[in-house]
Design a protein around this nucleic acid. Sequence first.
DNA 1: CAAACCCAAAGTGTTGACACTTGGCAGGCG
DNA 2: CGCCTGCCAAGTGTCAACACTTTGGGTTTG
Lengths: 235, 235
Amino acid sequence: MPAALDSPQEAKSPPLADAILGELLQRIYDGRLAQGDPINEAVIAEEFGVSRGPVREAVRRLQGIQLITREPYLKARVVTLTQEGARELFEMRMALEGVACRLAAQRMTEDEINDLLRELEQDRQRTLAGKNTKSTTKAFDFHERIVRGSRNSRIVDALCGDMYHLLRMYRRRSSAVPERKSQAYAEHWQIVRALRARDGELAESLMRAHVLRADEHLFTSLPLITSDTAAQRRA
Amino acid sequence: MPAALDSPQEAKSPPLADAILGELLQRIYDGRLAQGDPINEAVIAEEFGVSRGPVREAVRRLQGIQLITREPYLKARVVTLTQEGARELFEMRMALEGVACRLAAQRMTEDEINDLLRELEQDRQRTLAGKNTKSTTKAFDFHERIVRGSRNSRIVDALCGDMYHLLRMYRRRSSAVPERKSQAYAEHWQIVRALRARDGELAESLMRAHVLRADEHLFTSLPLITSDTAAQRRA
DNA sequence: CAAACCCAAAGTGTTGACACTTGGCAGGCG
DNA sequence: CGCCTGCCAAGTGTCAACACTTTGGGTTTG
């Protein structure tokens, strides 16, 4: 039996396609839709009790985020994570978060930076106490705060919208490394100091190094499949 | 077979939505669809002699590229170009092309770099002769070659796919500055030298400076509209 | 026995009709 | 005279049925 798709309560206007998009994302996150799984519009439509129209639209949007691969008349599939894909994703992330951090150094207000520093400290305190599970969420929040500090909605959308889903997908396959956490805190702290000093150059290079180190271990455990070998996988 | 590819020719299988997307893009390019023009699915559908389905899909994809703004039940509109939007677009372009250029310095083959240098010289010769109109096309080709040299298909897609359309839209509003051309050639030549020296750091910073200078004059002639003043524009 | 062909099944692309939401206009009430 | 209310039109969201493309397997043919 399919779960009803009323996650939050839409007051009165439910654009079905949006709800379905959210549910499909959820299924990809928790693994009910695994890598390479085929996407059948008709099946999903019946599962949700709706027509194929909204499903079609949701799938197209997932294709836009590159969470689903599809060619004109063929079955759509959940994207297969490869080492190549991870490398490309993280190179792009480094580029965007680096520049975002540089811009944030110029544009965040003093208050924003101080708030960021304070909450960073609070988070460290909480982590030292007990709640380890929340740390990854908090860590992303740190990055998001800085990205938004760039005052560039296009970069914000790219990082916190589209790429966020893919990053989350890749992270799902990697175990958290505990000792990485305290190192990450130190790096975060350094970045905030650079922001405070309004040193965009330094802030950018620190953020790049941080992202590189944070994502480093994700590369190792993935199958080494390139685009051409992926073609033969369909056979 | 020479690479003579005309855009509006569907070979054997016509995915209607793709054709419509292309035509809408064309209309935006040549101004038949101007900034802020409303997009009526039904009208466009009848105009093309198709149903609303494909039109709907094409419009959604334009929305994904951010060439069209739309909220759930409201009329869709061609995006209105603002100074703010241009700034954000070019900041993102600088970030991506910069990193792409750094990666290209590491990853392009000697042959690729030599070819690039040779064609760059050829282009300059042709420009000195007569054909000025082709120069902008060639200029973009130079950038595209380097971007592809990054061996990062995600960045390539972002720059040559989505952002290309928007850049083209902004460029439409600006007159070409002739003396800029020879300066651009000098900058291009410097970049190729950095690639040849495999100096990624230098290549990135040169590319950033080049993009910044190339886009600089586009900022000036645009209306200074922010997101909140855009809201009152709808009234 | 292998290769080409044909055909049915599965699934996507497309269509036209129907349901719902939004914004404006007209008329009534304070 | 101004504000609120309830309809009306325009346009998007959704649906169920139909048309086309691809694919896999069984059959025929060299």
